[in-house]
């Protein structure tokens, strides 16, 4: 049901029944290596193009999630998925393999939570018993579309981020055991006029702050309700900006409470400048690392705020600024329910 101006309160508490998380070799060397279900040793995944490799990533993540609960693709009523590649081809091609009734969604790097919010809404309101949602990104496929050829020697500034090769998929169900999705706040497009595609963190921070503020207003909640407010992916540059913006607006989050998927996925020794990014980044960190923490009862409540930059290489070259969006979804331990 609608809560406040732009949020949904999921009173039936859809369950994240299972998740599948796969990554590339570089992610396997990262800090969260143990949270992947499978790490591929080859960035090509034995395919002939990087786009096919990205398609495989989403397929593998989806099949892994399905296999964990002995389900088949045909048990899923709908699929909400998307990615960063033009016309969502990689996701649509993966859906061709899975053959689940499919909504292709684009929210750039906010796609993971856009999918989870929509999937949970449908399940919560009786539109489906099972929904599959997921997203994938591939470093080389994304680099070639948004920046330069992968082997081109261009020096990147310290504010730039590294696109994650990986995919996370989740099965949302109306019943069962697992972490539950309790609410979602849908963000509006925020554009602060920034134009540097090598500094996404600063461009996206205001969108994240806007959605988080709306979430706490809609639910009349205090930030202390959540163990973590997880952004994906503001990186080292954007996260402190967002914390500062929220405090300026009277949302008193603590620095320890705010973590960022792009900041924690890699080790400090990996040359990723400001951190990870890409549609797959928040998906693998949330569906892998953070849900594992909830399942192990290390944490009880998180608010995941996935942020997306809605520009294209063309719009940047035409000197347009970078519009950004953020969607927030709260995930909690089953049975804690404190509303």
């Amino acid at each position: 049901m609608l809560q406040g101006s732009q949020s949904w309160n999921f009173i039936n508490q859809p369950v994240i029944l299972s998740t599948g998380v796969v990554g590339g070799p570089f992610e396997g060397e990262g800090r969260l290596a143990d949270d992947f279900d499978h790490v591929f040793s080859d960035i090509w995944l034995s395919e002939t193009t990087f786009e096919k490799a990205q398609t495989r990533l989403l397929e593998e993540a989806s099949y892994t999630a399905l296999a964990k609960v002995n389900k088949k693709p045909q048990d899923m009523q709908f699929m909400f998925a998307g990615d960063l590649i033009n016309q969502l081809t990689c996701t649509s091609f993966a859906s061709r393999t899975l053959a689940v009734p499919y909504f292709g969604i684009f929210g750039a790097c906010s796609t993971s939570m856009e999918g989870l919010a929509l999937g949970s809404f449908v399940v919560n309101n009786g539109g489906a018993d099972y929904v599959l949602t997921g997203t994938a990104s591939h470093n080389a496929a994304t680099e070639r579309q948004f920046r330069y050829p992968t082997e081109y020697g261009a020096q990147k500034p310290p504010s730039s981020q590294w696109t994650v090769t990986g995919s996370g998929a989740a099965i949302v169900s109306k019943s069962g055991s697992g972490p539950v999705v309790t609410s979602a706040t849908i963000g509006k497009v925020v554009d602060m006029g920034l134009t540097d595609p090598f500094n996404m963190g600063a461009a996206m921070a205001p969108a994240a702050a806007d959605t988080i503020e709306a979430h706490f207003t809609d639910f009349v909640r205090d930030p202390s309700y959540y163990d973590y407010i997880v952004t994906g992916d503001l990186g080292k540059v954007g996260l402190p900006l967002m914390v500062e913006l929220l405090r300026q607006r009277g949302v008193m989050v603590t620095e320890e409470q705010c973590i960022d998927c792009g900041k924690i996925i890699y080790t400090d020794n990996q040359p990723v400048n400001a951190g990870g990014s890409g549609a797959g980044c928040s998906a693998v960190v949330v569906y892998g690392h953070l849900l594992n923490k909830i399942r192990n009862n290390e944490i009880n409540r998180i608010l995941v705020v996935a942020t997306g930059a809605l520009h294209s290489p063309l719009s940047c070259q035409q000197k347009e600024s970078i519009p950004c969006i953020a969607h927030a979804v709260s995930i909690e331990t089953q049975g804690v329910g404190a509303l």
Partner: peptide, 16 residues
């Protein structure tokens, strides 16, 4: 608002 934020963001932007 955009101008204020851009100044604010530029302050902390890591420089090459």
């Amino acid at each position: 608002a955009q101008r204020t934020y851009q100044k604010f963001a530029a302050k902390d932007e890591p420089q090459s």
